[in-house]
């Protein structure tokens, strides 16, 4: 599974989100690669899941890849529960 974290520039917020997503998937034992990028390159990244700030919800609309948005990038509990919800829905 390939997870992509995105933000406007692709080097600040998305990097921090990537680190926290990595912590979360390590914790729940999900086998996934996490990478970060900016929004414009995210569209054709081939990712299975995109995580971004709620702020980017509109910009990510219309993406074929499932998108999870979080409001607090530093809140691993929020990230964890949203990823778990996603996995449950996906049936894994």
């Amino acid at each position: 599974m390939k997870i992509l974290t995105v933000c406007g520039a692709g080097q600040g917020s998305s990097l921090i989100l990537k680190m926290n997503v990595q912590d979360v998937i390590d914790e729940i034992g999900l086998d996934a690669d996490v990478d970060n990028s900016n929004i414009s390159t995210a569209k054709n990244s081939g990712a299975d899941l995109i995580l971004a700030g709620e702020f980017h919800e509109d910009a990510l609309e219309g993406f074929e890849v499932p998108v999870i948005t979080v409001s607090d990038f530093m809140d691993n509990e929020e990230i964890k529960s949203k990823i778990q919800d996603f996995l449950e829905e996906k049936g894994e």
Partner: peptide, 13 residues
């Protein structure tokens, strides 16, 4: 960057 891409840089409360 904020004008252009928004206030997403407020990463946590």
């Amino acid at each position: 960057m904020v004008k252009d891409k928004g206030a997403y840089i407020v990463i946590t409360p």
